[in-house]
Amino acid sequence: MAFLILPLMTVFFWIGMSMQGWQLAQAVSGGGPAGRMESLAQVSAQQAEMFDAACISAAVSNPGVISPAITVTLPAGVAQPAGAVCMTTAGPGNGRNVYGYMPVASGAIGHVIADSQQNAMWHRVQSAGLAANLATGQTTEVPAALPVGVLLAWIQTTS
């Protein structure tokens, strides 16, 4: 039976090395299922932030335009996020409401809040016609056409 010890030690050695390699691969930033989800949330948040900044810029550069779909120009090489929409509605007085919204990955809202230092323009549409502010939790009426669950950047402008 002594001849069986060396092959068993070899097998256990390689199993141990394989397990350690797998653990190291999971420890790398973005590695494994949890890292993949975190990376997806970060990318989704960055897309939302960039799209909404471009949406606000497009709306402000077209004063007085009320539209359910304003064309947003993103930097060269940046694709329009899937489901992203920029719209304006008539606001109080002579102003306008500017809404930029898009569906985001799970966890992206936390990244947006952290990146924007809890900017009050960010909302999440909870139900048809109702959005919750991400910084304060206060609910506000929004157009019922906004899809439930989207991340919403909402500002009011006088132009």
Results as ranks from 00 to 15, higher is better:
Met1Arg: 03
Leu6Asp: 01
Pro7Phe: 10
Met9Lys: 00
Val11Phe: 12
Ile15Trp: 07
Ile15Met: 12
Met17Asn: 02
Ser18Ala: 15
Gln23Asn: 12
Leu24Cys: 01
Leu24Pro: 01
Ala25Met: 12
Gly30Met: 14
Gly30Ile: 13
Gly31Tyr: 10
Pro33Lys: 10
Ser39Asn: 09
Gln42Arg: 14
Ser44Ile: 08
Ala45Thr: 12
Gln46Thr: 04
Gln46Glu: 11
Gln47Asp: 13
Ala48Val: 11
Ala53Lys: 11
Ala53Cys: 00
Ile56Asp: 02
Val60Phe: 00
Ser61Gly: 03
Asn62Ile: 06
Asn62Gly: 01
Gly64Tyr: 07
Gly64Arg: 05
Ser67Asn: 12
Pro68His: 07
Pro68Asp: 11
Pro68Arg: 06
Val72Tyr: 07
Pro75Ala: 11
Ala79Gln: 15
Ala82Pro: 00
Gly83Ser: 01
Ala84Arg: 05
Ala84Leu: 09
Cys86Tyr: 06
Thr88Cys: 08
Ala90His: 02
Ala90Leu: 09
Ala90Tyr: 00
Pro92Gln: 14
Gly95Val: 12
Arg96Glu: 06
Val98Leu: 04
Gly100Lys: 07
Gly100Met: 09
Ala105Ile: 03
Ala108Ser: 05
Gly110Leu: 11
Gly110Cys: 04
Val112Trp: 11
Val112Leu: 02
Ala114Tyr: 09
Gln117Phe: 15
His123Val: 14
Arg124Asp: 04
Leu130Arg: 13
Leu130Cys: 03
Gln138Arg: 05
Thr139Ser: 05
Thr139Lys: 01
Thr140Glu: 14
Thr140Arg: 11
Glu141Tyr: 02
Glu141Phe: 05
Glu141Thr: 15
Ala144Asn: 01
Ala145Val: 14
Leu146Ala: 00
Leu146Trp: 06
Pro147Asn: 06
Val148Gln: 08
Val150Phe: 08
Leu152Phe: 12
Leu152Trp: 12
Ala153Ile: 03
Ile155Gln: 11
